[in-house]
Amino acid sequence: MIQLTVNGKTYEVDAPADMPILWVLRDKLGLTGTKFGCGAAQCGACTIHLDGEAIRSCVAPVSRAVGKKIVTIEGLDDSLAKPLQEAWTEVDVPQCGYCQSGQIMAAAILLRDNAHPTDRDIDNAMTGNICRCGTYQRIRSAIHMAVTLKTSAAAVQP
């Protein structure tokens, strides 16, 4: 049995050590917000946070997560989720939506670590996430918008 911390909750999971975190989340814990797109770390649909770093859960074995904190799209912190979701809604980013959990989880790292990302920074953060529907232009403008929203939210905070 493996003990995992996911979105602040602790779970006991019966899974082989080499099972990718993605399938533990989806098949064992029923958290289907994180998606399967390629199984080969090529597309980013499976992006989660492990101790604050984005990782590709389709290839990361669950053994790597023992003793660490997993955050999925379902549990993304409000300080990042809210500006991103608000911007994503304002711009109407998603089309089919299947890649968007991964896009948002990747964008969250950029948002957290860079207060003024340039377009180049956005490339550097997001080029790993494929969108077959081609929403890239909107992802870019939504990230710029999320930065503004986050900055103004922070300004309002005491």
Partner: peptide, 16 residues
């Protein structure tokens, strides 16, 4: 779009 809220929170259910 009406499907955006579900698709940006991981709540949208796909066949998979």
């Amino acid at each position: 779009r009406m499907d955006t809220p579900a698709k940006i929170t991981g709540k949208a259910i796909f066949g998979m």
